[in-house]
Design a protein around this nucleic acid. Structure first.
Lengths: 245, 245
DNA sequence: AACATTGGTTCCATTTTATGGAACATCGTG
DNA sequence: CACGATGTTCCATAAAATGGAACCAATGTT
């Protein structure tokens, strides 16, 4: 197996929750011989893929990785446009907004906008959610056909009401969640895609349930869908369903 | 040379300005044989370090890299704290703020806060600045001794007035720039370090020159230095100079 | 329609690296 | 000081990367 694969496996060990690793932690997680892990981390350090924290044994991703995240975002004008649209809505209403992408049954935030209200939802970026258990994930799943969704669940049980929920999203053009992943937190999500690159992103606003009534929610849906519709129009996304409240 | 080194070199080709690459672009930039580049990119793709955009020949950093940037930020509680402090100041005054780190004679933004004023400075993150030609860079250089700074310029000419400028920063505890990197844009920067990890970051606010008078500027210096002083106190940074306006 | 041009991949023998088990080194602690 | 936990070095073997050239495919060009 290529050493690149091993290096990538090491990198995959990092996350917001686990921001640094030692040689033995890598050994435990990947089940590789200690000697390999030691040399691998050393080589990755020398290549700049990792760096040590202070002069301790702890390793974190190299500084290089910061730039790559940025490059990723600007490589996709879908993400850039989506970020712009969400940023506007986030600022107008003061609630936190983010843009996320799906990979299999997981969704990850790629951009976020903190929101300005005193009571706001924080920390969306870098957190992984299960696609079918969040509005943002379902808005992305709804872009697939029923068969494609079932294929994603190959092996696992597909939640009973998911089909129905996705049908609703396909009809309405937007997804909602109320106190689902986090108590007291509601979310609105609308997905849009770029046919040229076959990417799709979800534009999402999260807000405290207690702070927003139906009217406020509908205003945000309208604002978000205006942004999404503009992007869909510009990029020629035919799968986009103009939201109807 | 390890293939990791080559892979890292490929990754270093990416930036905000160059968010995707083809095989031949890599060949041109790195001067390696075409066959190697082709196989290297393929291996990196298979490892998840890269991905292709749509079904074209263009490559961009893998999705993985997004998470790594996030991990990097949360690996350093200095960066996290600095981000918090800058975020508060940014929001209070509506101007863009960012946190950056120095590496040799370059500084890079690691976190940014867009600012809410209609007239604001955008796009700080991922952009590299020359350390001595920006307030944020000089605030970091001022933490070094004169000899250390001269060592950084080994070979190159060290700008004549830099020594003097850095002395001022060491005395005042903050750095200013007025229309230096960008016409019409001023900046305030204060550096703070974590003795435990030997990291240092700069807290910086950038704002349109035309929008802020001396009084407003001093208020921002005060707010920023309050945040910086709190961090310095908590982490025990003895090199920190409490700013005096 | 034949022909260069550009961009990418595959093939092969040779050279360079990675592997994993075990011995060795280092550090902090009871 | 001995212990346990962690990280590094050594070695022969197994597995890679290398680079030159041939090959493939799409795109313009006369």
């Amino acid at each position: 197996m290529s050493i690149l694969q091993n290096a990538a496996d090491v990198l995959r060990c990092f996350s917001k929750e686990c921001p640094d690793l030692t040689v033995t932690e890598v050994v435990r997680r990947l089940g590789i011989p200690k000697a390999n892990a030691s040399r691998l981390l050393k080589a990755m350090r020398e290549a700049g893929l990792l760096e040590t924290i202070g002069d301790s044994y702890r390793h974190r991703p190299g500084r290089l990785m910061l730039d790559l995240g940025t490059a990723y975002r600007s490589s996709s004008n879908l993400i850039a446009r989506a970020g712009e649209a969400v940023g506007e809505v986030s600022q107008r209403f003061g609630h936190t907004g983010y843009v996320s992408i799906r990979e299999g049954l997981e969704v990850t935030g790629v951009a976020d906008f903190p929101g300005t209200n005193a009571l706001r939802v924080v920390g969306a970026i870098g957190r992984r959610l299960t696609a079918h258990e969040s509005a943002t994930g379902r808005s992305l799943l709804a872009r697939l056909t029923g068969d494609e969704v079932r294929a994603l669940f190959a092996g696992r049980d597909m939640p009973a009401e998911l089909d129905e929920k996705l049908a609703d999203i396909r009809r309405d053009g937007f997804a909602l969640s109320s106190q689902e992943a986090t108590p007291g937190v509601d979310a609105i999500a609308i997905a849009v895609g770029d046919p040229a690159t076959e990417e799709a992103v979800s534009l999402c606003i999260v807000y405290p349930h207690s702070l927003v009534d139906d009217k406020g929610r509908d205003e945000m849906i309208a604002a978000l869908s205006e942004g999404a519709a503009r992007i869909a129009g510009e990029l020629g996304d035919t799968a986009f369903v103009p939201p109807r409240i």
